[in-house]
Design a protein around this nucleic acid. Structure first.
Length: 700
DNA sequence: GAGCACTGC
């Protein structure tokens, strides 16, 4: 098209820098063309002659769309010289020289090929998003550039990442900055904190509509509820505006639980003479780019999931965004022409209260899976507690991961990976689920376990979005869905899938039962993939159609529940004596209730089962156990025994501790003190933000 | 009446 992307002017400089350095950081703002051009620059300059250029993306859609674009620009067939690899879909061939892939796929690849020697260059794109997988790759790449025999070049590219920090991480590697092609965005601040950000957004939106020239408005909110509230109020207000005084409007919600066909509505061109209001979660911050946006309204809040390693509980908190995030939101107004961003908070808040950057995912997640992954790489110089992370997770979080892994036999008492742990790491699942599969294989119910595990992986895309009142029906069985026979949600999932199986995987069956076709198809894909991996370790043959000629389902359910109990040994809860609340075992005890959507039933005395294992403990309005399965006392005992004998010092120290030099000890101690302090600050920041937020919510 | 932001193998 002849539009010169800014990055192309720097081609010589980029190549020169890469020639002389093994690691280079490239900072390129939106519109710089880094994602599509960097790989082509390397290709033009001979870097694909002796290896492939890999470019990682945090998201599947990005990997596919950028690969498609590059193939087009080079005039080649997608899948030939330019290809991509995402889960379930490998569109590469022997001829592929430029390969786009998700960061998760590259991690999987380095499991079977730790040196990644088919690649001459690895580009970690969008590193500023700090996805868990990218963070682990950063650590692995740092190691790999030093030890790999054949030459490896690593490029870390990002929009707004603190280049100096990454550069220091990679022994002061050079940082190149490429300008972007964003239009200027004028920022407006509120003079004070809003009492209700829904009301403030509403008012601001109407002001824009009345006073400003045409252009779409993107409004950032925290969740589905607020979005729906906002939309109904906005519709009401717009209708009451005098006819003919303003343009017509289209109001669109945009959030993750919206079915895809509703999501893509924002990509359809609006009718002429019509202003669109897009009311969105932070999905519109990075994942989806809406064209035509000229005005952005930023509440300054985001709903964020975080993990507390002390209790094993996730929480969904509404927290203040970071300055980087605020700037990213503002930038959404300047993609096609100069824009305006209305921040519903004073500039002093932006400067003084907002953290500089968002806390990286690695410091907000359970690390059992990542730690198992690193252990399974089996490189002698990797000691988990001193693994070189760009931002190290707290020691507490790493110790929690080790405890979890020990409880499910993935590591032994000395912290070394076991045979079971190795088999688990092969599976693209969280450790509790991979352990369940291996145990089920021993208990003769692998097929059923595969089904449950696949259903859990697809869970969020199974039910249609609420507001249609469908869960109610699901729970009360008016849709003739099975009820788990009193054993809980996992068994129900098994029963649902088996019904679908008996119905010949009919799409119509899904819609009739108010299940999303897409979600069920995804379950089927995941199950198939897991089946293939398990084939190596499986006893006997694996029938996908598992329920033919069924004899004793109760016995089968029992075997499955026993397997789940082994896999979820770290996610165990005991009912309170006097009521139906539960407390968790194995952590600092946490009180929680079974989630209202669970199918778990009370007995004739009005009581829930004594012991359950749960898939997830999450605090939303209150702490809930989501997806529970009834287990027996006799299966619980060995776990309690194991907990008693657990020695965290052996678990974390068991791996090769290098001879402690005085220097080493000093730095270790200071590091420990630093990380011990971090969670408190973090916690209190979240708490403070939550308090402020709640204080502002209108009373009902 | 109580409900999960987003992403990925």
């Amino acid at each position: 098209m002849g539009i010169l992307l800014p990055i192309l002017q720097f081609e010589d400089k980029i190549i020169e820098t890469i020639e002389q350095n093994s690691v280079v950081v490239v900072i390129g703002e939106t519109g710089s063309g880094k994602s599509t051009q960097l790989s082509q620059i390397l290709h033009r300059n001979g870097y694909t002659k002796h290896g492939i250029v890999a470019v990682t993306q945090p998201r599947r859609v990005a990997a596919v769309s950028v690969a498609r674009r590059v193939a087009q620009e080079l005039g080649v067939q997608l899948g030939e010289e330019v290809g991509y690899a995402i889960r379930f879909e490998d569109r590469t061939s022997e001829r592929t020289r430029i390969k786009y892939l998700t960061d998760g796929v590259l991690l999987r690849e380095s499991l079977s090929n730790p040196e990644l020697d088919q690649y001459s260059v690895v580009i970690l794109d969008e590193a500023h998003e700090r996805s868990l997988n990218t963070d682990i790759l950063l650590g692995l790449m740092k190691r790999l550039v030093k030890i790999r025999q054949t030459n490896l070049k690593v490029l870390i590219t990002s929009a707004t990442l603190d280049g100096g920090k990454v550069s220091r991480f990679f022994s002061d590697c050079p940082v190149l900055t490429v300008p972007g092609k964003l239009f200027p965005v004028e920022i407006f601040y509120s003079s004070e904190r809003p009492t209700s950000y829904v009301e403030s957004s509403l008012k601001t939106a109407l002001d824009i509509h009345i006073r400003e020239p045409e252009g779409d408005v993107l409004i950032f909110m925290t969740g589905q509820d607020d979005i729906e509230k906002m939309i109904s109020k906005l519709e009401e207000k717009v209708q009451s505006l005098a006819e003919g005084s303003c343009m017509d409007v289209v109001i669109l919600p945009l959030h993750g639980s919206l079915p895809p066909e509703m999501q893509v509505r924002v990509f359809q061109p609006p009718p002429p003479n019509c202003r669109r209001f897009i009311v969105a979660t932070n999905i519109a911050e990075t994942s989806l780019t809406v064209d035509g946006v000229v005005y952005v309204i930023d509440s300054g809040f985001v709903k964020q999931r975080q993990y507390n390693p002390a209790t094993g509980m996730y929480s969904l908190d509404i927290v203040q965004i970071s300055r980087v995030q605020a700037d990213q939101r503002a930038g959404r107004a300047g993609r096609t022409c100069p824009g305006k961003c209305y921040r519903l908070y004073p500039s002093s808040i932006y400067r003084e209260e907002f953290p500089e950057v968002t806390i990286p995912e690695i410091q907000r997640s359970s690390l059992a899976g990542s730690v198992l992954y690193l252990k399974s790489l089996d490189v002698p110089d990797i000691d988990i507690l001193s693994f070189d992370f760009l931002d190290p997770p707290s020691r507490e979080s790493l110790e929690d991961a080790l405890r979890q892994l020990y409880l499910i036999d993935a590591i032994d008492g000395n912290g070394s990976i076991t045979r079971v742990g190795r088999a688990m790491a092969e599976l693209p699942l969280e450790p509790s689920l991979s352990r369940t599969l291996l145990e089920a294989n021993e208990n003769g119910c692998l097929s059923q376990a595969l089904t449950v595990v696949a259903m859990l992986s697809a869970e969020t895309s199974l039910l249609p979005s609420r507001s249609k009142g469908s869960e109610k029906k699901r729970k009360h069985g008016s849709l003739d869905l099975p009820d788990g026979s009193g054993w809980g949600d996992h068994i129900q999932m098994l029963q649902i899938y088996e019904m679908w199986d008996r119905a010949g995987y009919d799409r119509r069956w899904c819609t009739d039962h108010d299940l999303q076709v897409r979600g069920m198809m995804f379950t089927k894909d995941v199950r198939k993939q897991l089946c293939q991996i398990m084939q190596k370790t499986a006893k006997g043959s694996l029938d996908v159609r598992s329920n033919n000629g069924r004899k004793d389902t109760q016995q089968e359910y029992r075997n499955l529940r026993r397997s789940l109990c082994v896999g979820y040994a770290g996610q165990l809860a005991e009912r309170m004596v006097r009521h139906n609340g539960y407390r968790t075992l194995g952590f600092k005890a946490q009180l929680a209730q079974v989630h209202p959507l669970s199918v778990l039933k009370i007995d004739e005395d009005g009581l829930l089962p004594n012991y359950v294992v749960y898939h997830e403990l999450i605090a939303t309005s209150r702490p809930f156990l989501r997806n529970v399965c009834v287990v027996e006392m006799s299966w619980v005992m060995p776990i309690l025994k194991k907990l008693e004998n657990l020695d965290i010092n052996k678990l974390s120290g068991g791996t090769s501790i290098p001879e402690a030099t005085v220097d080493g000890e000093v730095t270790d101690l200071s590091k420990e003190a630093a990380v011990a302090k971090a969670p408190d600050d973090h916690e209190s920041r979240i708490q403070a933000a939550r308090d402020r937020f709640l204080a502002r919510k209108p009373k009902k």
